[in-house]
């Protein structure tokens, strides 16, 4: 069995707001193994970014985090202090954000920041740190790496900045990388390059990767396992093959039905759609969160919490009252399986 890097059990994030308590993340469990890519996919406001921030202990101050278990490489980080967490962040756990400009300091050169990233956590000489920076910049496909070290972030294009960001994250050789929408701000051609790079590096260094995105195309191409989130809950979890080829939860099916796929969706035919909008998560909510927008919903859907249940295959779970066979039939009817 592969080495477990991250184990999260029943993670919750609550944020007090004007009208009550916003239950932004409601009991999420997942794990990441060595060399594995987990994609958390969902639409805006589903809690996917808060989930990643909660794992890194970088939530906004007023947010309240709770969990049964939060372990990084066997170490309990749920009750770790801020000192310990800042040792872990950037060291064994790397982060890549959507806009690299916000995580790179505009006042320092690339070289300075990369060396600092290593020297903060390891006892190394500037010489060694510099060599590693050059090695990693070359690794992420940056030509003339040595001369780039003396450049400032604003002198680089968006794609190059994201490459630098990735190289910087790798400085300490982390076991786990959390990437929150790393390619959303980039052009499609650059997006493909960055994803390719991430996938290659992850394979080479055998890291765990959590990729958070709303783009199903990205997920399908890069994920080993997928967690689909809706309104603060994971509604379906499984391997990429299971989730994309045998989508079980009506929401997953709806999402796949929504996106135009060249060569597959018929032109000039309307796309599938999910009517309605995401429900507010303020206050207690004991019902299927998707019921209001679900075409298969029935009375029992709103009579209490819905639990995750296993689908036909191993490791494939979903949160719905309909049995797997019915879901399967629905998916086939909608043409998404």
């Amino acid at each position: 069995m592969a080495e477990r890097i991250l184990e999260v059990e029943n993670l919750t994030v609550d944020i007090p707001v004007g009208g009550g308590m916003l239950h932004a993340v409601q009991g999420i469990s997942f794990h990441v193994d060595k060399g594995e890519t987990l994609c958390i996919v969902g639409e805006s406001g589903c809690g996917k970014s808060l989930t990643s921030l909660a794992v890194m202990d970088l939530l906004p101050k007023k947010a309240i985090r709770g969990a049964n278990k939060l372990e990084l490489g066997g170490e309990d980080i749920l009750n770790a202090g801020e000192r310990r967490m800042s040792d872990i962040r950037g060291n064994t756990m790397g982060m890549i954000f959507q806009e690299p400009m916000t995580s790179l300091n505009p006042a320092y050169t690339i070289g300075n920041q990369m060396e600092e990233a290593l020297k903060r956590h390891r006892k190394v000489s500037t010489r060694e740190a510099r060599d590693r920076a050059i090695y990693l910049l070359e690794k992420v496909g940056i030509t003339a790496a040595e001369s780039r070290l003396s450049q400032y972030p604003h002198q680089l294009s968006g794609g190059l900045r994201q490459r630098v960001m990735i190289a910087m994250t790798l400085m300490c050789g982390p076991n786990l990388i959390i990437a929150d929408e790393p390619t959303t701000a980039l052009d499609v051609t650059i997006q493909a390059q960055i994803l390719l790079l991430l996938a290659e590096l992850q394979r080479e260094f055998e890291m765990g990767l959590i990729l958070i995105t709303h783009d199903l195309g990205v997920v399908a191409r890069i994920a080993d396992r997928v967690a689909v989130m809706y309104a603060g809950q994971v509604v379906e979890q499984g391997t990429a093959d299971q989730v994309f080829n045998r989508p079980t939860h009506p929401y997953t099916q709806g999402l796949l039905d929504c996106i135009p796929i060249p060569g597959k969706t018929e032109r000039n035919k309307p796309l599938g759609s999910i009517p309605g909008i995401v429900p507010s998560l303020v206050g207690p909510f004991h019902a299927c969160h998707f019921a209001e927008r679900c075409q298969y919903a029935f009375d029992d859907c709103v009579k209490g919490d819905i639990d995750m249940r296993p689908a036909v295959e191993d490791g494939h779970e979903y949160r719905c009252l309909l049995d797997p066979e019915t879901c399967r039939a629905n998916a086939q009817k909608r043409g998404v399986a």
Binding site: L196, A199, G217, V219, A220, R221, I222, D241, P262
Partner: peptide, 12 residues
């Protein structure tokens, strides 16, 4: 570079 949601394909 269009990423269709097909898990059998890799990043191009």
């Amino acid at each position: 570079s269009v990423l269709t949601p097909d898990p059998s394909l890799d990043v191009p």
